[in-house]
Design a protein around this nucleic acid. Structure first.
Lengths: 340, 340
DNA sequence: ATGAAAGCGCTAACAT
DNA sequence: ATGTTAGCGCTTTCAT
């Protein structure tokens, strides 16, 4: 048990030098086929595994990427994760992942974990608290050390790096337009994740669309900025006090729960009230009626972000491209919670 | 830009030795308060970050744990992941995660990634293919190297290690009993993930319960071992050809979709057919009617597995405890898809 | 209290 | 084709 055989051990047993063993195991052509085979066989037989810390130290790089996401129980982020994992593996990188759990403190702790040398690049979507407090200085150390960062979905303008974002403004505009075209005039906007930049964009898209269709914006129909536990109360009060014929939910939670509450209150969906929600997870497909949703293409976002990051990692340092922001178009998946 | 300042740099600037700097930064009491402060301040100012590869190499250990899960889009595994992340962080370890995507090949590739020195311990739940082909030799190298493994949920008897499993037999027995006590006699069992050890246990629990209640086991009511794309066809044929008054779904997918199909076919839930499903994710709570579910306490399983693993990692080598298997009890969350 | 030096396991430049 | 050697950045023992 507990072997941990090293290059030296192999070299000693086979009466060759450490350098030869290293070269043989790395497929260097300087080594004769015969010795190579001897060495490779011996290594395999004794289950030699290179010490990755020594390799990384020597090579001054590591084939690993750090990933910080706010919440893995959120389907969108789970999708991103799955895309990241896949794309990174294809290019020979592995993922060191951390969940910030929407907390700034945890996010900072996490950046300390992803220390110097552990990762060659960092993928991050900001925690809710981080965005609220606009505190992003803990990412600066990576940039200082020359470790590239790619931010996705929840990004910060204060950090200079590549970004992958969803066209939240457009998505919201299109969803609102769809509702208006299907005959709705009293479109409410509901959100539980306030203060997030993406929330503001979604709100802006919604407002712009109403304007373009000459519908007066009624701030009373915009419900955000409240405690999640008060959701039911807030929505009930919205539906009681105002004539609403459509709800645009800025998160899956908001859309699905708004529908459940509206149904409970006796409204017919979509006859009385139409619903559209952001994030196309499992719920909208299984709920009754199924909910028309904005698909943000999470997996694709993950893949794209990895590609940008690895390109940056492997980029020649003589020829550095300017930072870019990739905007991913969303699509509206039409289901039964909206009229034609 | 691109500083990557090292101990040597600090030592040179402050005209002290590398050893002194190292000791100061690690809070060694040999160093005078004055020098310590000078060094710490300088390091902070220049954003010194230790090279983790060098530290790990020198210390011959790494504060990281590897995690291999079959599928992050599965709510149960997402829950486990979240528990793992949390518990590991509490004890100062970070997580290097990989998704096997239910593939043996990917799982093997993954074990190669989690090479020697990168991680101090490994947490794994087997991929479907791995279980089917009973090929688990790729885990042996970790055991040989003295890197402990803890398997959870989908475990292998061929590997000697600590394990955390769900009481699948008991869970299935209890669920079946609940159905019988609520007046059902024709209980069907439906599964899409066949050949998994946990599936067999669930089936055994189901059968044992029927026996105990003197209900003859009708193999026609057991639907498994088919392609996922054929799900609808299989369930429709089950409901057409047999009088069924309850369905026990061995996965969330099976339970939720069985219910949807039964509803489409005009059956009333739970009056005509009762439903119980494994895995207590979001879907069973939002679907109409809500589905009575077996909660496997994913987060707790993750935490428990981490604790066992870290205890093993930090264990004195003179005093090695025998391997143990922790069995986590499930609970049945009663909802509207079952009668009283 | 501080410094010097060895060495963790590996790669790669250089020598043979 | 194979060997020798320096050194990656750090910790730690031993000396001063």
């Amino acid at each position: 048990m507990k072997s941990k055989i090293t290059l030296r051990d192999i070299a000693k047993h086979l009466k060759v030098s450490v350098g030869t063993v290293s070269k043989a195991l790395n497929g260097n052509h300087e080594i004769s086929e015969k010795t190579r085979k001897r060495i490779v066989n011996y290594a395999k037989k004794h289950r030699y595994v290179p010490n990755i810390n020594a390799v990384n130290l020597r090579k001054e790089s590591a084939p690993a990427i750090g990933l910080i996401i706010p919440n893995i129980l959120n389907y969108f982020f789970a999708q991103v994760f799955s895309g990241v994992e896949m794309a990174a593996n294809e290019r020979g990188y592995n993922i060191i992942s951390c969940i910030s759990n929407e907390s700034l403190e945890k996010e900072i702790a996490t950046t300390n974990t992803l220390k110097n040398g552990l990762i060659s690049g960092l993928l991050v979507s900001l925690s809710e608290e981080t965005e609220k407090q606009k505190q992003t200085s803990h990412f600066k150390k990576f940039i200082d050390m020359g470790t590239p960062i790619v931010m996705f979905d929840r990004v910060s303008t204060a950090i200079q790096c590549d970004k992958v974002i969803v066209d939240d403004f457009g998505a919201s505009y299109d969803a609102t337009e769809y509702l208006i075209k299907s005959g709705c005039r009293k479109v409410a906007a509901v959100s539980i994740l306030d203060n997030l930049e993406i929330g503001k964009l979604r709100l802006a898209g919604y407002k712009k669309c109403l304007e373009d269709y000459n519908i007066i914006i009624d701030e009373k129909l915009i419900v955000r900025n409240f405690d999640k536990t008060l959701f039911t109360t807030e929505i009930k009060s919205l539906l009681h006090n105002h004539k609403v014929d459509a709800i645009l939910g800025f998160e899956e939670f908001a859309a699905v729960n708004s529908m459940v509450i509206a149904k409970d209150l006796g409204f017919k969906i979509p006859e009385d009230i139409s619903i559209i929600g952001f994030t196309n997870g499992m719920l909208p497909q299984y709920v009754t009626p199924t909910i028309t949703s904005v698909s943000q293409h999470g997996k694709y976002i993950g893949q794209k972000a990895v590609q940008m990051l690895i390109n940056r990692i492997e980029e020649e340092h003589t020829n550095i491209a300017p930072f870019s922001t990739e905007i991913i178009k969303t699509s509206l998946i039409i289901r039964d919670s909206t009229k034609n």
